[in-house]
């Protein structure tokens, strides 16, 4: 087929331009894929679909919230050329700020617990972000406190995006993730499962789905214990509760054990061909527990990132 004919065929079959004007246009619109083998024991009318957020340019769901927070701050005049983007993060949001900052020409400064995975540290460095490490003994709450201290000392220098309290975070999911799931399931979705870190994903997506149908159940996944091995997840009862998180909007919370979540991440690689992180393992474990209780349903579950950022950890050593 000639180049001209190939082009004509593409234009007939696609409403998208051949190239994107900027990599930021590639955030969102992630694939939704059916989980087949792991769900083999479920009733035949129970379908589980994973939303593969690792397909975002920065490799995680956090690209959505970070881009929205940055662009809203630009629109509001809070983020200007002379400001440095500042926030605390356990990794994925930091990676998102870093690459988006690189594209848009902003400096980025991040407070990160010293025990984030080595890959994350190297990726942040690759994108040119300045990283301040907080005590690994104090986890993400220690990073939150240190970031505020840095901000308060020089408020004129920074634009603090504050992912835990910034309404642009859930709004990204209301406009993006929620609408995409409705479209991708052709409105058949009955249950939505997502893990909680800031709560942005579950709050924004949940609101959009509930608006579409009050019958859709919104199910949150959190670590079963304050001392856990699920990177990025928050055990709410023992943590600083984010301002954007409203537990009363959830239908249910499922506590996920670390070891079973690791095992599920391994099964996802070996049975479904999906190399994903621990939080996806936790979300899938919870989705399967939910699926066992259903007779019929279409469950959409968020897989927040890929597994390649955890290769230096013992995640797959089961």
């Amino acid at each position: 087929m000639s180049v001209q004919k190939l082009l004509e065929a593409h234009l007939r079959n696609s409403s998208s331009p051949v190239v994107s004007r900027s990599i930021v246009e590639l955030v969102g619109k992630t694939p939704l894929v059916r989980i087949n083998r792991i769900t083999a024991e479920l009733p035949k009318d129970v379908e589980i679909y994973a939303k593969l957020e690792g397909y975002n340019p920065g490799g995680s769901v956090k690209d959505r919230a970070a881009l929205r927070m940055i662009e809203d701050a630009e629109d509001q005049g809070r983020l200007t050329r002379d400001k440095v983007i500042l926030d605390s993060t356990s990794g994925n949001t930091g990676i998102a700020y870093s690459w988006i900052g690189a594209v848009k020409g902003y400096k980025v400064e991040l407070v990160v617990p010293g025990n984030v995975s080595e890959e994350r540290k190297k990726i942040l460095n690759a994108f040119g972000a300045k990283v301040v490490f907080s005590s690994p003994l104090e986890g993400s709450d220690g990073a939150i406190r240190l970031a505020w201290k840095i901000y308060v000392e020089h408020p004129d220098r920074y634009c603090k995006l504050d992912q835990y309290n910034n309404p642009s975070n859930p709004q990204a999911h209301y406009d993006g993730t929620g609408a995409e799931i409705i479209a991708q399931t052709e409105g058949r979705v009955t249950h939505f499962v997502a893990s909680i870190g800031t709560g942005g994903t579950i709050m924004g997506t949940g609101r959009r789905l509930k608006e579409f149908s009050k019958e859709i159940k919104v199910v949150a996944v959190e670590p079963d214990n304050a001392f856990h091995g699920l990177e990025g997840l928050k055990h709410m009862a023992s943590s600083i509760v984010p301002g954007i998180y409203h537990e009363d909007e959830l239908d249910e919370k499922i506590p996920a054990p670390t070891e079973e979540s690791y095992l599920m991440a391994k099964r996802l690689a070996r049975e479904e061909g999906l190399l994903v992180g621990q939080s996806s393992g936790a979300a899938m474990w919870a989705a399967l527990e939910l699926g066992k209780r259903l007779q019929k349903g279409v469950v959409a579950v968020i897989f927040p990132d890929n597994g390649d950022k955890y290769l230096s950890t013992r995640l797959w050593e089961v």
Partner: peptide, 10 residues
């Protein structure tokens, strides 16, 4: 005693 990973951000 240090958790091998950092909790808290999704």
């Amino acid at each position: 005693i240090i958790p091998a990973i950092a909790g808290g951000v999704f």
